[in-house]
Design a protein around this nucleic acid. Structure first.
Lengths: 364, 364
DNA sequence: TTTTCCGCTGAATCGCCCT
DNA sequence: GAGGGCGATTCAGCGGAAA
């Protein structure tokens, strides 16, 4: 298979075939996020199957078990290496698994140079009970979120997830029901089309939280195309790889009938870091504060504004942040919220003035 | 170190030293359960400060520093091999970890021949937030429960855990608070004695669910001795191994002041035929307790019995189990052993009355 | 005595941009 | 590539002090 050209032409397609070969044909550093739900049919009792579904001839049990884990690891490391190659330097990956395979998956991620950011528990609100009463109800699966490397500046929409979680930080345990009812794809006989179809709510949270609109999400084990459907709806692009043509066709039809949300709906709560920078000196230049004016801290410390936008006290001089940190004996300080100026007898944070400047910048 | 003789002489002792060497000196096939809380290999880099500029007291001990994943794996495989050797053929192991180490731990377990039964999520009700808003709140840790081999007939007290869980199957996600307050051991300066002390509620569930009274529980990373204290209280024996003599001494003192429950209280729910259920309300119906009578907890809390068999305090109302758990801030509570009534000036557990009902039921 | 408030703390892999 | 400066960022629960 020759290299596929980069660019818009490849986006929003489903490639049919082996995911390792298909990824090998993709250009390096072309994908923002990988979401992978790899097979974990480590059936170590009864018939033994390799991850590629070929059957292992029955031989000595101990040897088989070792061989099977080894085969699974070899498969895992191969597709992970390709996934890492096609990821952009600041890209990230999500993988999902159960206790059968997730430990091998996580160790392989670390060995490949990925940098784990969180493990996330998908806590099923309606799991299948353990019928024989021999173990605990297996009520969760595990996702691992990892950056391409420990240097990657990965995407994380902190405020958006905080909003999704009713105003407090999103935790590492997510309660989401199984994929059932109308959402569950059926085949022509009315049976479930795929054994491990994931709920769209799960992908929604992943994609809202760790991608930006227009990003490319690659799913090398596309199945029924949940990743593609949610990516499309949320204004992201996708690349799907699926070995089974029947599944690929069903996924294609599903995505075709999925409606992309308009851009208004795609906007999420942004971070303050995204706001334009304003130098404190600009407030002085514009006459919002005059040189010589005194600012006060919450604990009553005072500092004088100088013409160049620095502050000075008896003992310290420097930026609004540096002087604040020095006075507090703290490693750092946000001078914008720390310092207050007086208007009509009231102490107002200088951040109020920064907001004024920002509105004027936006208007102009 | 020579081989230590098997038998009762070794039980309920804390061995001071390296856990691999100490386990090597134990006889093979002599232990029913291993509970292991190994170093997590956190790989922390700089300091971390809260938004209020206070510094986070992180785990920076030597025992948590490893040169590489390879070094950590080598250590893990060594102690796991010894743990497996000392386990009886039908024995089992619990290990606990975070995303830093648990994937390597799980893979090593599988490679060593252990047979994973469940992974269990300890969902922390009060985790430390992510102060920089750069990741999800790391709100859980992972336990792995594995039998010594796929042939092991491991211990699982299904009905006991179902009862603990208010009548429905115990799931693989457990909500338990951090170990704080009075339960947290302090050193002579009043600081936390150990950076990673686990809550007793966690060990309670593990030991009730997967051991029998009289079993031997080995903890090769004993720390403050939570495993030993809970094992003793629940009528199990323990062997602890701890490298730091100061921790070992504190653990010894803690266990010495722990009271072993009497054998009545230890009986967990067996098969339903052997231990017929008794509703607390039956005691009221039969006049063994009158509505309005006051029950007391071991720590002196009081609750009033109502006609429908519920309890009420100023702040809580519900079943004997619910109110006990609420008062203790615990995830669960056995109300039968927790609540006491007064007869002739003495406080007697209400379980005494349940036993009376059961004998009457058996007689009738 | 009771309620409210305030401070402290917990296994943490916790920046980004510009020069 | 390294260094320096800006400036964003927290939840639940316990316990002691204060009202």
């Amino acid at each position: 298979m020759g290299k596929i050209e980069a660019g818009a032409g490849l986006r929003n397609q489903i490639l049919t075939g082996d995911c390792i070969e298909a990824m090998a044909a993709l250009p390096a550093a072309s994908v923002d996020l990988v979401f992978a739900d790899p097979p974990y049919n480590l059936q170590l009792r009864g018939d033994l199957h390799r991850p590629d579904n070929s059957r292992v001839d029955a031989v000595d049990a101990d040897w088989d078990r070792f061989a099977s884990f080894e085969a699974y690891d070899a498969f895992t490391r191969k597709w992970l290496a390709q996934a890492r190659r096609v990821l952009k330097p600041n890209g990230a990956i999500w993988v999902i698994g159960s206790y059968h395979n997730v430990f091998r998956l996580g160790a392989a991620l670390q060995d490949a140079g990925f940098w784990i950011l969180n493990d996330v528990v998908w806590r099923k609100s309606n799991p299948m009970p353990n019928f024989r009463g021999k173990r605990l109800t297996n009520a969760h699966e595990t996702l691992i979120w990892a950056a391409r490397s420990d240097k990657a500046r990965y995407t994380f929409n902190y405020e958006a997830l905080k909003t999704l979680n009713e105003g407090t930080q999103m935790r590492s345990d997510w309660v989401i029901p199984l994929c059932t009812g109308h959402e569950r794809l059926k085949d022509e006989n009315g049976d479930k089309a795929h054994p491990t179809q994931k709920p769209e709510a799960l992908l929604h949270r992943v994609i809202v939280g760790t991608t930006k609109p227009g990003d490319v999400v690659l799913d090398p084990f596309f199945g029924t195309g949940t990743t593609g459907a949610v990516a499309k709806r949320l204004g992201r692009d996708f690349i799907g790889i699926e070995a089974d043509p029947a599944h690929a066709a069903r996924a294609r039809a599903r995505i075709d009938r999925t409606v992309r949300l308009d851009s208004d709906a795609l906007e999420v709560t942004g971070s303050k870091r995204a706001e334009p920078r304003v130098a404190f000196g600009v407030l002085v230049e514009r006459g919002m504060l005059r040189p010589g004016e005194v600012l006060t801290s919450p604990r009553g410390a005072a500092a004088k504004v100088r013409a160049d936008g620095s502050l000075i006290t008896a003992e310290h001089r420097g930026s609004i942040h540096q002087v604040g940190a020095a006075l507090e004996g703290a490693p750092s300080c946000n001078g914008w919220t720390y310092w207050h100026f007086k208007r009509e007898g009231r102490a107002i944070p200088i951040d109020f003035l920064r907001q004024q400047v920002r509105s004027e910048m936006a208007a102009g």
